[in-house]
Measured scan of single mutants.
Amino acid sequence: NQASVVANQLIPINTALTLVMMRSEVVTPVGIPAEDIPRLVGMQVNRAVPLGTTLMPDMVKGYA
Rank of each mutant, 00 (worst) to 15 (best):
M21V: 12
L17Y: 00
L51C: 02
M59E: 08
A34H: 06
Y63N: 14
D58Y: 07
T54S: 09
N46P: 13
P38A: 15
A7T: 04
A16G: 07
R47D: 14
P38E: 07
V5T: 15
S24H: 13
M22D: 01
I11Y: 01
V41M: 08
G62T: 12
L19R: 11
P29V: 10
V60P: 01
R39D: 03
N14W: 10
M56S: 11
G42C: 02
P33V: 13
P57Q: 08
G52L: 06
D58A: 11
L10V: 15
E35G: 09
R47P: 03
T18W: 04
V6P: 00
M43E: 12
L10Y: 04
R39E: 03
P12Q: 13
Q44R: 07
I37G: 09
V5A: 09
T54R: 13
V49H: 02
L55S: 00
I32Q: 01
M43T: 15
T28H: 15
L55H: 00
G52Q: 14
N14Q: 03
P38W: 04
P50A: 15
L10I: 08
A64H: 10
D36T: 05
S24K: 15
L51D: 10
V41C: 02
L55P: 00
A48V: 09
N1S: 13
Y63A: 15
G62H: 04
V41A: 07
M22Y: 02
L51K: 13
L40E: 01
G52P: 00
Q2E: 07
I37T: 10
M59W: 09
V26M: 03
V6T: 11
N8T: 14
L10R: 12
A3K: 12
V49R: 04
D58L: 07
V45D: 01
D58N: 07
S24A: 15
Q44D: 09
V45W: 00
P50Y: 15
L40R: 00
A7N: 03
P33D: 06
M22H: 01
R23N: 09
G31L: 01
D36H: 15
R47L: 05
M56Q: 13
A48L: 13
V20H: 08
L51T: 15
N46E: 14
P33L: 06
K61Q: 13
Q9K: 05
T28M: 08
A64C: 03
L17M: 04
V6K: 09
R23M: 06
L19W: 04
T54I: 13
